[in-house]
Amino acid sequence: MTQLALVIDLNVCVGCHACVTNCKQWNTSGSAGPLLDANPYEADPTGTFFNRVQTFEVGTYPNTQTVHFPKSCLHCEDPPCVPVCPTGASYKRKEDGIVLVDYDKCIGCKYCAWACPYGVREFDEQRKVMTKCTLCVDRIYDEALPESERKPACVLACPAGARIFGDVHDPESEASVAISDNGGYALMPECGTQPANHYLPRRKTALKIQNEQLYRSANPLKVEGTAPLPPSSEDFAT
């Protein structure tokens, strides 16, 4: 069984929003579109976006982490949004696990959005149907595209390469390897939704310089006859 998904690497996401607007432009003129923008030039502009990037601050100054957090539908393996839908418009594809909305069946009751813990479904106020990330289903199988480009728009756009696309059921896939190598995790595991999308945590590279490393016999100061002071526990420079 295939389960396509995104793996998002918070360790390199700089919060640039490329995935946000690239998703919008791909999908608004694609099978999911058009995606509405209301009050586009007025107060409080708002619109349908399948993907949003949020920002969180973790910790207190000066030990603060700024975390940019992109979020789209997680294509849950046990998606609560599907069984609650009264019309069958909300469905999960058997062949690849993508969760979709059938715009021609949807009555716009919004019930699926209530069932989703993640706040990733967006109701289109003009077409009056529920919308959400399609995992770019109209791209990833498009044989007119070269193989390397049969990936979601947000993945191809991401300048940081923070978005990995693949089959998380295939342990060999880049996505699965990224999850297992880097401690990939799921959001709100307590909800039992088994999100297919995963997140990779921040990883910190540290460097420890030993005092001994500072003092080498091949020190250029010696060339000048002004050898540095031997290492002491604190200040070498004075």
Partner: peptide
């Protein structure tokens, strides 16, 4: 943990 931006200043469906 404190949110600083939700990614849509004019609001959204959510």
């Amino acid at each position: 943990i404190v949110q600083k931006a939700q990614g849509a200043m004019g609001g959204s469906f959510n």
